[in-house]
Design a binder for these strands. Sequence first.
DNA 1: CGACTAATTGAGTCGCTTCAATAAGCGTGG
DNA 2: CCACGCTTATTGAAGCGACTCAATTAGTCG
Lengths: 250, 250
Amino acid sequence: MHQPESDRTIDRSSAMAGTRSHCDACVVRNRSICSALEPGARHLLGREGRIQTVKRGQTLVWEGEDALLVANVIEGVLKLSTSTSDGREQIVGVVYPSDFIGRPFGERSHHSVTALVDSRVCLFPRAAFDRFAHDHPELEHQLLNKALDELDRARRWMLLLGRKSASEKVASFLLEMSVRLAEVGCEENGPLDEFELPLDRQQIADVLGLTIETVSRQLSSLRASGVVDLPGRRALHILDRNRLMALAGD
Amino acid sequence: MHQPESDRTIDRSSAMAGTRSHCDACVVRNRSICSALEPGARHLLGREGRIQTVKRGQTLVWEGEDALLVANVIEGVLKLSTSTSDGREQIVGVVYPSDFIGRPFGERSHHSVTALVDSRVCLFPRAAFDRFAHDHPELEHQLLNKALDELDRARRWMLLLGRKSASEKVASFLLEMSVRLAEVGCEENGPLDEFELPLDRQQIADVLGLTIETVSRQLSSLRASGVVDLPGRRALHILDRNRLMALAGD
DNA sequence: CGACTAATTGAGTCGCTTCAATAAGCGTGG
DNA sequence: CCACGCTTATTGAAGCGACTCAATTAGTCG
């Protein structure tokens, strides 16, 4: 498959002839951490990474194992999750295209990473990535910003987990979904009112710290009151966003 | 914008008498983010900061206000907290000496910062700190590591909030406290078995997503079963750490 | 020592979970 | 294309853990 010549940026870096990398056409090159890199440096990092597809349900990293990999999400949605020894699970993060996965400069992975829908990631061996990051402060800066954003998001979620009722949790979740899917879904400028949930009911329950039955009941109640419609198992239609926001309660 | 000299030349200038900064004797200089800096650069950063005492209960930063400050904790313990509009509070973080406070490169503060006990912090205007960090990759690297550690900690706490029972929550909390206080309390090499809780019962409840009564009942039950002793209002004595760890359930 | 605040304890209620049964999607093969 | 079977979701009924409200006790500080 031959991509036609494009980006002006190629001319100089191709002082080394034939060195165009997949990065030049990467759909997340302007939003992932790579966006901080000059084309030359980006190319260099690109040589360390490889594209990998991850099918729905497939686990990329297991909780507790050595953290040998980091990655950029190119396409899809993945969950980060941890469990108690007796099997209770909590989803501690959901990542979308342009998000970063993994723990650079760290020994162990503290959570599993599993695809919620068929996904594609750009995978790096952690050691090589660490080395590269160490030599490229602009990359570390971007990494820092992403980490700080994730930290804020995690802390807002702690308020939800610790202090919100089941109905507030479900309302908050639907709103967050609609916002984040819109951010990813390109040219749209507002949150989406109609979308496919990348999570099934059990996974929603695992995000919210509830049971599957409670999630189902809350969704049914939202439908009954005309706030949302549920045209299919994973389909969601927000009919009254204002009411949904009022129900989210923060 | 004219910067006086580059870092290397500062080494020399600090050899000049009278340029010693408070940083040279700072008790957290080897563990805070400053530990990444050469003495010269550290001195330069030190000039931007000032030591501030924060009394128990005093709030350094308010949720939602402009993020004008960042800081290193020198002494004491502080909480990070958020609230719902109707006043339910969740503590989303507890910071100790050598921890970093604030959101560099960010506009708004997403949580309040309040001293749990009389504390001292090294305060920087965010704008000046951002500028300095931008010019000192080794500082950003350290910042990144701290942020990633905090992120892991926050995510482990999400498992607790979403999936653990009241008794597991309290047991986990006591263990975490004993570990973190020991890390701070210098030469000790293991977790502390006897310490003062920097939080009152309401604040423990706000960390765990429980009510004050439930926390009290769980503590009483732990005392009744001989796992801990409660010699005073804020005093805690761990009598059977193994049993406590079993009760923490992860 | 006495007054005030913080913590404990008790009784009753409520919200979420648990267990169980039914219904709806959805992919497959006839 | 529809019927079938499997998976996933919904709904119901009962139980229980944590919350609420209220009263009592214990620390702590002047």
